[in-house]
Structure formats: structure tokens, C-alpha cells
């Protein structure tokens, strides 16, 4: 049974990734957009020193990941609704949250490709040594962080099931997470009452660990403790998401919103 669910998640990932790849916009979003952003960012940072590149790359990379995921999760539902497939997949034995999880993996892969493209650009065009001081720890955190990241996005996806109009609020969710997770500047600059909010967001811990690993200051003990915490938060997010999906799908069956456009 477990294998069948894994297989279904992989199928959702593959389907979404294939749909993205065959879209002309994919090339633009994955290669040309990072080219433009990298030109601007690395141009500005030319005088700041070579070591600065990786910090910008991590912060902006995570911010980009969050945006992709937020819109990816929302659009996963909206896209299905528009193509008339939402009712069909809702009626399959695979839980809806697993399908959205798989689709989010597809979106994340696209975003990662985009990050890699911009790093390569910084290295090849601008000559920044985008060295990562602790590469093993960096990629381990990246993997754990991404799973937790997806679970976080998954909590929001049920809202988009409720009604097509809910998607209008998608934009409003983008910047609070950038700020609370310290993607762009340290959370110490924020009012003290926001700190607990940051602590319950797994992307905050992921960003902390990634920046420490990139800079070579990540202790093994911190890596273990905070990675466990990130995974635990991810587990809680998935639990909440599965309950929310169940409630919202039942409400959609009452309100007849699955087939709406």
C-alpha cells in the first residue's frame, strides 16, 4: 500500500514536471529569468567581495523557492480546476494532499534547476567562486529543508480547493514568509513578538542552516538538532494539511465547488 502511494506521488511529480518542461514559459522561467536577476544581483555586488555571492544566492534562492512553491501549490489546484481534472483526481483513491505533494516536487525541481542556472552564471560570467564551505552538510540540509518546505506549502493548498476566488490572496502570503524566515535580512531586526512566529516556520531554520553550511560555521550538533526540528515541523505540517484537505474536500462536495472555474 505504502509503495502504491509513493508511486502515485511520483506520478504526480512526473506529470507536473513533464507539463512544465513542454511549456515554452519553462525555458524562460528556468534560464532567462535567472540570467536577468543574476546580471542585476552580481553587478550590484561586484565591489562587495567574492565571498558575498553565496549568501545572496542562498537567501534569494530560498525566496525564489518559496514564491515558486506558494504559486505552484495554489496553481496545482487552480490548473486542475481549469482543465476539468480536479473532480477526476478528487475521485481517485489517492488522497488529494499526496497528489499536490507530488506536483509540488515537480515545481521545486524546476526552481532548483533555476537556482543552479544562476549559480553557474555567477561562476562562469562573473567569476565568483561560489564555493560552499561544508558541501555535504549543505546538500543534506537542502534536501531536508525542501521536504519540509513542500509540507509547509501543502498546508495552504486546501484553501485553494475551497473556491477559485481564494487565490486572490496568494500574493499576500508571499512577503510575510520572506521577512519572518530571514531570507532577506536577519530576524533580529524585527519586533520581538514576531520571533515565535519565525520559530514555527521550517524555512527559517532551513535558511539558518544553509547559510551556516555555506559559510563553514555549521557545528555537527546544531545540524542534527535543527534538522530533527525541521523534519518534525514538516511532519506536523503534513498532519495539519491532511486534516485540512479532508475538511475542505468535504466542504467542496457540499458547496459544489470542485467543478467550478
Amino acid at each position: 500500500m505504502f509503495l502504491k502511494y509513493l508511486y502515485a506521488i511520483f506520478a504526480a511529480f512526473k506529470m507536473n514536471f513533464l507539463s512544465l518542461v513542454v511549456d515554452g514559459f519553462f525555458i524562460f522561467a528556468t534560464l532567462l529569468m535567472p540570467l536577468i536577476y543574476a546580471l542585476i544581483a552580481f553587478g550590484i555586488l561586484r565591489d562587495k567581495g567574492a565571498h558575498y555571492g553565496i549568501f545572496v544566492a542562498v537567501g534569494s534562492g530560498l525566496a525564489g523557492l518559496w514564491t515558486t512553491l506558494l504559486f505552484g501549490s495554489g496553481n496545482a489546484i487552480t490548473g486542475e480546476r481549469w482543465s476539468g481534472t480536479l473532480e477526476l483526481i478528487a475521485a481517485t483513491p489517492t488522497p488529494m494532499w499526496m497528489i499536490v505533494f507530488g506536483k509540488s516536487l515537480g515545481v521545486i525541481l524546476q526552481s532548483l534547476l533555476s537556482m543552479v542556472a544562476s549559480y553557474l552564471l555567477g561562476w562562469l560570467v562573473f567569476g565568483y567562486p561560489l564555493g560552499i564551505a561544508q558541501p555535504l552538510e549543505f546538500f543534506l540540509v537542502l534536501f531536508i529543508g525542501l521536504l519540509s518546505f513542500i509540507a509547509f506549502g501543502l498546508m495552504l493548498a486546501p484553501l485553494f480547493l475551497l473556491n477559485p476566488q481564494v487565490q486572490q490572496f496568494q500574493n499576500a502570503l508571499e512577503y510575510p514568509v520572506y521577512i519572518l524566515c530571514g531570507f532577506l535580512f536577519p530576524i533580529a531586526l524585527l519586533p520581538f513578538w514576531t520571533t515565535p512566529l519565525s520559530y514555527i516556520l521550517s524555512p527559517y531554520w532551513t535558511a539558518r542552516l544553509l547559510q551556516a553550511a555555506a559559510g563553514g560555521t555549521l557545528a555537527w550538533e546544531q545540524l542534527v538538532n535543527e534538522s530533527i526540528y525541521i523534519l518534525a515541523l514538516g511532519g506536523v505540517y503534513i498532519l495539519i494539511a491532511s486534516v485540512l484537505f479532508r475538511i475542505v474536500l468535504k466542504k467542496a462536495r457540499v458547496d459544489a465547488t470542485l467543478g467550478l472555474q
Binding site: K4, Y5, A8, A11, L88, T92, P93, T94
Partner: peptide, 12 residues
């Protein structure tokens, strides 16, 4: 073909 493969997987 891909459509059918995808729905098959969702039907496990």
C-alpha cells in the same frame, strides 16, 4: 498514453 499512465497511478 501519459494521461492514461498518470490516472492509472492515481488509481494505484
Amino acid at each position: 498514453m501519459d494521461n492514461l499512465k498518470y490516472f492509472s497511478s492515481l488509481y494505484q
